[in-house]
Simulated scan of single mutants.
Amino acid sequence: MMARGWVLALASLAVSTTVAAQDLKSPSADQYVPRLGDIMSAAQTRHQKLWLAGKAQNWALAAFELNQLKASLVEAALLYSGIPVSNVTTLEPSLQATSDAIAAKDGRKFARSLGDLTEGCNACHRSMGRSFVVIKVPSDPQPFANQQFAPQAKP
């Protein structure tokens, strides 16, 4: 029952994307459907930006990136029936812990929960026969040179 509630909550995030959640389940022939690899690449980018924002203690940006990451996971699960919903719902505890750490502005809890979330991604990859796709907590300090990650000074 709890898992179903989580899926519904995640699905509500998908509604905010350019395609309504109901359209995601059965796209028409003329509707663009992103490839799973493109959705996962976006999720990987969000994961890295989430880490960079948390490391810079820009908690508002971290919260935004976490929501974007959740939306990517929902989109993947809704568009690709081969991804068991349970793979997405098993990420709920680490997604919630990351959200809680962001709300508390707690860098240590954030780092721990992001590590758990990262392992959850890898567990999903392993269960899908994609164990060669290994995500890690980022170590490169600034791969996105075109975006500022430190919070803006208040005017």
Rank of each mutant, 00 (worst) to 15 (best):
A3C: 04
A3N: 09
A3V: 08
W6C: 02
V7S: 09
L8Q: 10
S12C: 05
S12Y: 03
T17K: 13
V19K: 06
V19L: 01
Q22D: 11
D23H: 10
P27K: 03
Q31V: 03
Q31Y: 11
R35E: 10
S41E: 05
A42C: 00
Q48R: 06
K49C: 01
L50E: 02
L52G: 01
A53R: 12
G54T: 07
K55E: 07
A56G: 03
Q57K: 15
L61Y: 11
E65D: 14
E65H: 15
A71M: 14
A71E: 15
S72H: 12
L73V: 11
L73C: 05
L73F: 14
E75N: 12
A76Y: 10
I83G: 02
N87M: 02
V88D: 10
T90W: 15
T90K: 15
E92W: 15
S94K: 07
A97M: 00
S99T: 01
K105T: 07
K105L: 01
G107I: 08
F110H: 06
A111I: 05
L114Y: 00
A123M: 06
C124I: 11
G129K: 10
I135D: 11
K136P: 03
P141T: 06
F144S: 07
Q148N: 09
Q148D: 04
A150D: 11
K154G: 00
